[in-house]
Lab assay of single mutants.
Amino acid sequence: MTGIVKWFNADKGFGFITPDDGSKDVFVHFSAIQNDGYKSLDEGQKVSFTIESGAKGPAAGNVTSL
Rank of each mutant, 00 (worst) to 15 (best):
S48P: 00
D20M: 10
K6A: 07
L66K: 07
G15T: 00
H29I: 04
G13S: 03
I4R: 12
G57H: 07
D36S: 12
D11S: 14
G54K: 09
G22L: 06
M1I: 10
A55Y: 13
I33G: 03
S48T: 10
K46G: 06
G3L: 01
G54V: 06
K6P: 01
P58D: 10
S40D: 06
K6H: 10
T2R: 08
D21F: 07
G13V: 01
I4F: 11
G13F: 03
N62M: 12
W7R: 04
I17A: 01
S31P: 03
G44C: 09
H29F: 08
I33E: 02
V28E: 00
S53T: 14
A55T: 12
K39Q: 10
A59I: 14
W7A: 03
N62G: 08
V47S: 00
S23L: 06
G22I: 03
D42V: 15
G61T: 14
F49G: 01
K46T: 08
A60Q: 01
G37C: 13
G22R: 06
Q45M: 14
I4L: 08
M1E: 05
D42A: 13
E52V: 15
W7G: 02
F27H: 02
F49E: 00
V28N: 00
A60I: 03
Q34P: 04
K24I: 10
S31Q: 07
P19C: 07
N35K: 13
K39T: 08
A60F: 02
K24S: 12
G3N: 00
A32Y: 04
N35I: 14
W7K: 04
N62Y: 10
S23G: 14
V5S: 00
N9F: 07
H29Y: 06
G44R: 05
Q45H: 07
G13T: 02
M1L: 12
E43T: 15
F30V: 13
A10H: 14
M1Q: 11
I51R: 09
F14M: 06
N35Q: 14
I51N: 04
G22V: 03
L41Q: 01
D42M: 14
S31H: 07
F16K: 04
D25Q: 06
V28S: 01
G44H: 06
G57C: 07
Q45A: 11
N9V: 04
D20G: 06
V47M: 02
T64I: 14
F30N: 06
Q34T: 13
G37D: 09
S23K: 07
T2L: 09
K6Y: 04
Q34G: 08
L66R: 09
G3T: 00
D36R: 10
V26L: 12
A10L: 10
G15L: 02
H29G: 03
N35Y: 11
H29W: 05
N9T: 05
V47A: 02
D42N: 14
G22H: 08
A32Q: 11
S53Q: 15
P19N: 04
G61R: 15
K12Y: 11
Y38S: 10
D42I: 15
H29N: 04
L66I: 14
K24N: 12
K24P: 14
T2V: 09
F30T: 07
P19S: 04
K24G: 11
K6R: 12
K39W: 08
W7N: 03
K12C: 11
S48L: 11
K39V: 07
S53V: 14
D20W: 06
A10G: 11
W7T: 03
K56S: 11
I51C: 07
G22W: 06
K12L: 14
F8E: 01
P58W: 08
